[in-house]
Computed example of a mutant assay.
Amino acid sequence: MAYNSKSMSARMNDYMNLRSLPAAIGIVFTVASLYLFGAITGLTFGWGVEYQIADTHALWVSLGAYLLAFASSETRSFDKYDRGEQAMIAAGPLLMLLSQHWTWLVDTMAANSPHFAIVAFLISFGSYAVLVQ
């Protein structure tokens, strides 16, 4: 039997090269953002916990996934993006925050059936896509 002398950091580096962690983060971001913008409603965790996710928690999960995706991206520096990409990257989290805390935006999203919420989700998802390129 061969002995594998790789360190833990080398093993984690190998794991990150598989790009499975960024893909999982993308799934978490997408589901939390869909919930945040109203595409998914009534997300409940069972197994005796019976916890229904709140909009605020979906916001924090989306922003946390966004931050993790930035940390695991190959760029890892805001300065390495061009101006248009920087604006798109900033628009996503800003729109997520404003969708929960700016009354005018909350009312507009509620009044325009799903159209405004769909556009808001697409902007945040596009922002995530630019971030992880």
Rank of each mutant, 00 (worst) to 15 (best):
A129I: 09
A24W: 13
S9A: 13
F45I: 09
R83G: 12
M8P: 05
G64E: 09
N13C: 09
S72G: 01
Q100T: 08
Q86S: 13
R11H: 07
K80A: 12
L122R: 02
I123C: 11
T56L: 14
V61I: 15
I53A: 15
A110K: 11
L68Q: 03
A24L: 15
M16K: 13
T30S: 12
L59F: 11
L59T: 09
T75A: 10
N112R: 03
I53P: 13
Y66D: 09
L36A: 14
D55A: 13
G46Y: 01
Y3Q: 09
Y51M: 01
M8G: 00
F45E: 01
G26C: 11
L36H: 15
Q133V: 01
G84L: 15
Y3T: 12
S33I: 05
Q52N: 08
A10R: 10
N13Y: 10
A111E: 11
L95M: 08
S124Q: 12
P114T: 03
M16P: 05
L68A: 12
L67E: 07
A71N: 02
Q133P: 01
A111T: 04
Q100L: 12
L59K: 08
V28L: 15
S5V: 04
A58N: 14
T103Y: 04
L59D: 04
M16W: 08
V130I: 15
Y3A: 10
L97Y: 14
G42M: 02
Y51V: 01
